[in-house]
Design a protein around this nucleic acid. Structure first.
Length: 687
RNA sequence: GGCAAGGUAGCUCAGUCGGUUAGAGCACAGGCUUCAUAAGCCUGGGGUCGCGGGUUCGAGUCCCGCCCUUGCUACCA
């Protein structure tokens, strides 16, 4: 078998947000596949980079008052920290904002020009005069022209579902600066991808490069009609690379992002004395390129990207592996539910190996969505990894610490040989990205091994000194079966492979290590290999996720900060209560809308006003409120307030207070009574 | 609305070219065991394979219709 040369990529994470569990589906999937290829002895490099360009990065850097370079440097560090904690091992992790990438962009661009595919057209877009930038649809909000719903994004209305152009919005506002955008026209550069239509049809439909459902999707959606020209430039200001033959214009982020795969490879080549052309030019023995991406970016990777590569005379992907989205407990990840868990949050509570294994058991070759069911996560990890796999070692290793493994491999009824014979079938599952099938096969092996231990019962044999050899033999078999499983699982659980290597004093480096049992070697002192998942830890992570959730997109950061300038002082003065209250706790407090029918100074009181409140109908409440420093009695009469109506009555120096009026603020002049929006009536309960 | 994928045990899923009595793991019930961080082994209950028709000696599997779920799409990309 000649070793294949394989170049593998994951999609480039955007330098605008942290890595979360959804991202990790892809990086773990790719990393498993790469580790598998390496274990098999193939020449395989795993290439990735940060995707650093675009409006969102530019805006966010501005808001943080620092350069884009400083911002993307920080984010890169955070990304790398997360990846390495999850054992995602890149051969090179570059940046689209590198000279390597600029160089490749130039080359591809030159080819596109030379092929006559680039044309100019004017594009009219909303422009923010204050932020001095053109606005993508999602950076504009206004009133829906169809149904008048306020606060809708520039492209469609989520109230009535209609779609429109941002220019049609009533009272449009830039979410970046709060300014009113104006229409402006600017020159853009387009790639006439339609000229490659026939070739793309053939390439996508050939059945080798894409999953069937993806090929069908493209056929029905894009390839069934003329392909629209692709807008690949943005006018300044834009954080990116300026187009050399079109000063003032920058390549759109989606132009240089996939090229980042090549740019990052170039960086790796420079560091390792390799030639870029050996990997990206179709030579006599071309490298296989494999892209792993999520289904949301199918379009870019299956139409534009191949078109660019083809035009530039570069190597086309052997296969684009497309996966689905992550859901948690059957629902979309949600910040409020705490299921939008960042990688760093996960790491505070749980072991990364657990997630690698769980994802492996759920990943198939199709682009189905993957559900992280938290309860299943715990039971699966516990019963498979701790109960079956690790348990093999922990129930036998101690018995042979002193004597080591038998000097010849004992009769095990063919267990090891049969499991070794399954290597090809397991390898085929890995190769085809059917990790879930691979895990099933491997766990069946672990079941058989546990049954063997049970039948041999070395703990019983051990009581009879005459049978010491039998104990050693039973443990030799079990530990070899364990090691064999550790080899098969090595792409998924590199740490377990290392631990098994240490325990049995023999490194696991190749897939073939599964084929020959170890004999006559010593066994080190046994240490626990893996802890169980406690459901409480999982819940703690979800709670934590609720706290750490926000801060991801420039959009989210932009909306509150610019128009309102809300600072953190208030919440810092009185931090949020960490402990939750239940809905039952909440309904114990009976809050009511009340009318102030009379208000008076209290003689002898420094802070109090005496209020007479009506909840409608007969009767009134007498309430003393400590708001004298901020309100005059005459200003209060007639207005509505919110009253805690079932607060226990309290006898005060000046009389009995029958409730409490709700107000916010630090005290002194800073007291702000709550009042309901107009329409509320005295007696209404606050829910 | 259009396109795609799916609907199999309580849950997550496998089921090849149509072929005996439809499978696995988890969960559940009972038993055994007590080496292993409450781990392990055995046994068992549990299914109208979404619904209706058709082809066939034979359909979870192929064909037609319908219902439902999810995703994509509907302006842009």
């Amino acid at each position: 078998m000649t070793a294949r040369r394989i170049l593998v990529t994951s999609a480039l994470p955007y330098a605008n947000g942290h890595i979360h569990l959804g991202h990790l589906v892809e990086y773990i999937q790719t990393d498993i596949w790469v580790r598998f290829q390496k274990l098999r002895g193939n020449r395989c490099i795993y290439i990735c980079a940060d995707d650093t360009h675009g409006t969102a990065i530019m805006i966010r850097a501005r808001q943080e008052g620092r350069s884009e370079d400083a911002m993307i440097a920080d984010m890169r560090e955070a990304h790398l920290r997360d990846f390495s904690a999850f054992d995602v091992a890149f051969d090179n992790y570059g940046s689209t904002h590198s000279e390597y990438n600029r160089q490749v962009c130039h080359e591809v661009w030159t080819s596109l020009r030379a092929a006559g595919l680039v044309i100019e057209k004017n594009v009219t877009q909303l422009f923010d005069p204050k932020a001095k930038t053109f606005l993508a649809d999602r950076f504009v909000k206004g009133t829906c022209p169809k149904c008048q719903a306020p606060d809708q994004y520039g492209d469609n209305c989520d109230k009535c579902g209609s779609t429109y152009s941002p220019a049609d919005l009533i009272n449009p506002v830039s979410t970046l600066s709060g300014a009113t955008p104006e229409l402006r026209s600017a020159k853009h550069l387009f790639v006439e991808i339609e000229k490659l239509h026939d070739w793309l049809t053939e390439w996508t439909q050939s059945g080798l490069h894409l999953q069937d459902e993806v090929a069908n999707y493209l056929k029905g959606h894009f390839l069934g009609e003329p392909l629209r020209d692709w807008d690949v430039s943005r006018p300044a200001p834009y954080f990116g690379f300026e187009i050399p033959d079109s000063p003032g214009d920058y390549w759109y982020v989606w132009f240089d992002a996939p090229i980042g795969y090549i740019g990052s490879t170039a960086e790796w080549c420079a560091k390792n004395g390799e030639k870029l052309d050996d990997w990206w030019r179709p030579g006599t023995a071309p490298a296989e390129i494999h892209h792993f991406i999520g289904k949301d970016i199918t379009y870019f990777h299956t139409l534009f990207w191949p078109a660019m590569l083809k035009t530039a005379g570069l190597n086309l992907p052997e296969r684009v592996h497309i996966h689905g989205f992550l859901t948690v407990d059957g629902e979309k990840m949600s910040k409020t539910k705490g299921t939008f868990v960042q990688a760093s949050t996960y790491l505070k509570h749980l072991d990364p190996s657990w997630l690698r294994y769980y994802y492996a058991t759920k990943l198939g070759s199709r682009l189905d969505d993957l559900d992280l069911n938290l309860e299943e996560f715990a039971t699966k990890v516990n019963s498979d990894l701790v109960g079956k796999v690790v348990n093999l070692a922990s129930r036998t290793a101690r018995f042979v610490e002193a004597v080591g493994l038998s000097s010849t491999y004992p009769d095990d009824g063919g267990l090891f040989r049969e499991a070794a014979a399954q290597a090809d079938s397991i390898a085929a599952a890995y190769e085809g990205c059917d990790f879930n099938g691979a895990m099933r096969q491997i766990m069946a092996l672990a079941d058989r091994a546990n049954k063997y231990v049970d039948e041999q019962a070395p703990w019983t044999l051990r009581k009879d000194p005459a049978r010491a050899a039998d104990v050693q033999n039973a443990c030799t078999v079990t530990l070899n079966l364990f090691r064999q499983i550790a080899v098969y699982l090595a792409p998924v659980l590199p740490r377990l492979a290392t631990q098994a290597s240490q325990l049995l004093q023999q490194p696991i480096t190749r897939w073939e290590d599964s084929q020959t049992p170890l004999v006559g070697t010593s066994v080190t002192r046994f240490e626990h290999l893996m802890k169980r998942v406690e459901l409480a830890q999982v819940q703690a992570m979800i709670e934590d996720g609720k706290q750490t959730a926000p801060e991801t997109t420039a959009e989210a950061a932009a909306v509150p900060s610019t128009p309102w300038n809300d600072g953190p002082e208030q919440i810092a003065a009185e931090p949020l209560v960490a402990e939750h209250c239940t809905i039952d706790d909440f309904v114990k407090v009976d809050l009511r809308v009340a009318r102030v029918v009379a208000a008076n100074e209290v003689v002898g009181a420094d802070k109090l006003l005496q209020l007479t409140l009506s909840l409608g109908g007969e009767g009134t409440r007498n309430v003393f409120a400590g708001i004298k420093s901020a309100y005059k009695p005459e200003d209060l009469v007639g207005r509505l307030v919110i009253l805690c109506a079932n607060l226990a009555p309290r006898k005060m120096k000046f009389g009995i207070s029958e409730g409490m009026v709700l107000a916010a603020g630090a005290g002194g002049k800073e007291i702000f009574l709550l009042n309901p929006d107009s329409g509320a009536k005295p007696g209404h309960r606050v829910h």
